[in-house]
Design a protein around this nucleic acid. Sequence first.
DNA 1: CCAGACGTTGTT
DNA 2: GTCTGG
DNA 3: CCAGACGTTGTT
DNA 4: GTCTGG
Length: 259
Amino acid sequence: MCGRLTLHTPVLDWLLEFFPAYANLWPASIGAIIKTHPGICQARYNIAPTQPVLVIRQFAADTQPQLEAMRWGLVPPWADSLKIAYSMINARCETLEEKPTYRPLLDQGRCVLLADGYYEWKQMLGPEASAKEQAASKQTYWIHRPESKPLALACLWTSNHKDLDGNRAQEPLLSTTIITTDAGADTRSVHDRMPVVLQDETAVARWLSSQAHWQSIKDLVGPAGAGTLQPTRVSSKANSVRNQGPELIAPELYTPDLF
DNA sequence: CCAGACGTTGTT
DNA sequence: GTCTGG
DNA sequence: CCAGACGTTGTT
DNA sequence: GTCTGG
């Protein structure tokens, strides 16, 4: 699955990679979002659920896609509390069309999350080990594109207009969830699920096109092809959200005396 | 009809 | 809001 | 996702 | 064990 992210690629570089056609318009967009969300465009090596993430939405064909900050973890319009979001950080692609919360978003709530990697925890021991042993044996991986190029993740977003958890909502709460699918060849050895990766500029444009119906773009949802992603063994520093620095994605070498 | 869930992962 | 379970 | 808390009363 | 916080 996908429960922790990185974004250290400069945001302008990310936008130019997937939307070169709007090259001269992006600096203003970035300036605007920095005003409302200071710090959101700085490098982040440990983005956790509930935190703001950067997403792209497009409201009409041939208009500039919009850069937005959203809370990670979907808070549906009917929710009276933020609690539900803890279990809606990912949405299984296999059941998107059945789930009443997700179905309307397939046509009206597609967006793309800006990231350049995510963390995964490999379970190194089988079910015969105790829960304690299993927890202690987890190996952290940072999964990213070769050369650490930007990554576009297929997501759904929605808006909640209620006074959540007793706090009067001044503004509607925008939130997002990352679609997951079976792991592809690159990451299967680490974990059996992965986020849906939009491969290139064309895939991103199709996913975002607001006039396109789900049936015509659902082919974009599936495991990434071999060669798309690369898992790098890293230390357990990323396990704690208090740790934030670039050292979290540094490759960890195997220590020979353990083998 | 009303009440209650609405979600995923991993673990058991 | 909308679906499922009883 | 993992880490860390998990509770109340009265007093400062 | 289960929930909350980040």
